[in-house]
Simulated scan of single mutants.
Amino acid sequence: MATTRPNLQEADIEGLACADGYLWLVDSHSLKRKNPKLKDGADKARKLLAKVRSDGNRYLLARIPLVEGDGTCELAKRTRQNGPELFAARLKGDDKGDELTEALQHDLHLGPFLGIPGKDNGFDIEGLAVAGKRIFLGLRGPMLRGWAVILEVAVAADATACILRLQPIGPQGCLYRKHFLQLGGLGIRDLCDLLILAGLTMELDGPIRVFRWPGGCAPADEAVVPADALQRVLEVPYGEGMALFSPDGDLPNSLLVVYDAAADDRKSGKSAVTVDILELPPLR
Rank of each mutant, 00 (worst) to 15 (best):
E14H: 04
N57I: 07
L86D: 02
T101D: 02
C18I: 15
N57E: 14
R46E: 14
A89P: 02
D98Q: 04
A17T: 03
K44E: 13
R58Y: 00
V67Y: 05
D43F: 11
T72C: 06
S28L: 07
S30E: 03
L60R: 13
V67S: 09
L48N: 07
K47S: 14
D55S: 10
P84C: 01
L75Q: 08
L49S: 13
A88T: 08
K92A: 14
N82I: 00
L48K: 13
G83S: 08
I13P: 02
F87M: 05
N82S: 12
G71P: 03
L23I: 07
V26G: 03
G97K: 03
G97Y: 02
A17V: 00
A89F: 05
C73P: 00
E14C: 05
D27T: 15
A62W: 07
E85T: 14
L60D: 03
N82H: 12
D20M: 01
K92D: 12
K34E: 14
Y59W: 15
I13S: 05
Y22K: 07
I64D: 04
E85W: 04
L48C: 01
V52E: 10
D40T: 05
K77Q: 08
G83R: 08
A17G: 01
L86M: 11
L48Q: 15
Q81N: 09
S54C: 11
L75F: 12
K37D: 15
D20C: 01
D95Y: 03
D95N: 11
K96R: 14
D43L: 14
D95P: 00
K37A: 11
L61G: 04
K32T: 13
C73H: 05
G69A: 06
R78Q: 12
R58A: 09
C18P: 00
E74T: 15
L100E: 04
N82P: 00
S30R: 06
D20Q: 14
K32L: 10
V67T: 05
E68C: 07
G56S: 12
K44V: 03
A17D: 13
L48A: 14
Q81P: 00
A62F: 07
R46F: 05
L91D: 03
A19S: 15
W24E: 07
L16K: 11
A62H: 10
A62N: 11
L48Y: 04
G69L: 06
I64A: 13
S30W: 05
P36H: 11
V67M: 11
D94A: 08
D20F: 00
P84H: 03
A45F: 06
W24H: 13
L48F: 01
A76M: 03
K77T: 12
V52M: 07
I13R: 01
D40I: 01
